[in-house]
Design a protein around this nucleic acid. Structure first.
Lengths: 188, 188
DNA sequence: CGACTCATGTAATATGTTACATGATTAA
DNA sequence: TTAATCATGTAACATATTACATGAGTCG
């Protein structure tokens, strides 16, 4: 799984410039690359060298020239092979858990504040991705099946945030319960 | 958020050698570092240079010498400061979504097989982390509150897997529904 | 006898981020 | 006039993975 595959995918949807790809990755949390130039322009050079993409230079008036990249037949085959190939498990990377792990040195109120801050940031994050999806609504939907797949991808991210918020509220509930009934089993 | 903070945390629990830390990270999906030597031994040198940890060399008979690292007062302060500091949002990195994004080129059955494979791998992954948690049960539990925090950390990972499995079954259900009632709204 | 554990380290490589560099056009 | 958009690229750095190197002891 590298950004090269994601780029092949996007080019299978429509021809793009490096700048188009950059903007797409910047505006998409689902495809977890940040959209930095270094990676994208290097990847395009590499994919060209492998014959998976070709580029055509378009000269524009009043704007810089651009290189429009197209997927080749070999690129289409490589994409299909990759889609049917190895599956990677998701990575649940939650740095806040590492913070919580050593939070027993805090006062009760400090700990509750920390959890509150996490909840607040999650809510901001959720609104940000929802806003991002509303803004960036030009996504593949060439068939009703493809439309469904992209809806489910968005659903995956949104429900991940909701699940995380649910978890935070369980943590808070359990901490308050422990405070009120020290050393009693919580009943969950 | 770097591995240095996680190491300070572990040393606040008990003194460790580089090897201990390596084993801990290897056996813990929650702390998302793989436990490779390069990072750990470099981090320990760095933390020493900053005065956040000290080391004592223990010579053993019939086994290689080892360096036992202890947290200093400055290290304890740095840890507390970090725990109360900036919070990072979780990263929901799901490479399978990128594969699904371009899966509309597949036949219905190929797509269902791909989804089935993902579900199977998720179930293996879930069993693996459950097994890992059973094996690696020596975790901080110095107070009932700390015990609760570590339980909630484990809960976070396990429910993330369950949520992902739920999502996969929704995807399958929606795809089958679409196949049976093409172009009809799904009712969800 | 071969593989694994304990134990510390280095080298090469891959991946990803931030910032720099250039330069025209457009909108606040 | 300051910032943003369009557009391509490079440099420096941070982070992470795999493999290499050494060497004693133990388990099957």
């Amino acid at each position: 799984m590298s950004i090269n595959h994601a780029i092949l995918g996007l080019l299978s949807w429509k021809p793009c410039t490096g700048y188009d790809l950059k903007k797409f990755f910047e505006g998409s949390t689902l495809m977890h690359w940040s959209g930095n130039n270094n990676q994208i322009y290097k990847a395009l050079v590499q994919l060209s060298a492998e014959g998976l993409v070709t580029s055509e230079t378009l000269h524009q008036e009043g704007a810089p020239s651009k290189k429009l990249y197209h997927l080749t037949k070999e690129g289409q085959q490589a994409l299909r092979k990759w889609v049917l190939g190895d599956i990677e498990l998701p990575e649940f990377k939650k740095p806040f858990l590492v913070q919580l792990a050593w939070a027993d040195q805090l006062e009760d109120q400090e700990l509750l504040n920390l959890i509150q801050r996490y909840e607040d940031e999650l809510e901001v994050g959720l609104r940000t991705v929802q806003e991002q999806m509303r803004r960036n609504s030009d996504v593949p939907a060439r068939t009703s099946r493809e439309k469904l797949l992209w809806e489910m991808m968005r659903d995956s991210l949104i429900t991940s945030y909701h699940n995380e918020l649910d978890w935070v509220s369980r943590v808070r509930k359990n901490l308050l319960n422990l405070k009120e009934n020290p050393h009693e089993p919580s009943g969950d």
